[in-house]
């Protein structure tokens, strides 16, 4: 069978119809993704492929998967490195007062 994302027909429980308020970082994830697409730096199918190949697919929220996939593609294309993203993210979290 296909990957973890290929879930049509799988058993599932009741559908949670609750809605969370979209957070700023989720809007940003959406926007960066679209802007990279607009620049020809990423296609929908590349992003889908990157999402499908995430090991933590089932544990991440929707926009967490988007961020992880965008990061994966940017590193794959040599636009950014994992180290510089790690470093900058750590510095941002320190700035937020998080460990």
């Amino acid at each position: 069978m296909g990957g973890v994302h290929d879930m049509g027909g799988s058993p599932g429980g009741p559908i949670d119809r609750g809605q969370h308020e979209v957070e700023d970082w989720e809007r940003l994830a959406d926007a960066i993704n679209a802007a990279l697409g607009g620049k020809g730096l990423q296609t929908t199918d590349q992003h889908r492929r990157a999402i499908e190949s995430l090991e933590e697919y089932r544990d991440l929220s929707y926009y967490e998967r988007w961020v992880a996939a965008t990061e994966k593609l940017l590193v794959e294309k040599g636009v950014l490195t994992s180290d510089e993203i790690d470093e900058r993210a750590a510095s941002i979290r320190r700035h937020w007062g998080e460990p």
Binding site: W25, I32, V67, R88, A89, S91
Partner: peptide
């Protein structure tokens, strides 16, 4: 991931 997208 909020920090990661800001970093990106």
């Amino acid at each position: 991931y909020a920090a990661r997208i800001r970093a990106i």
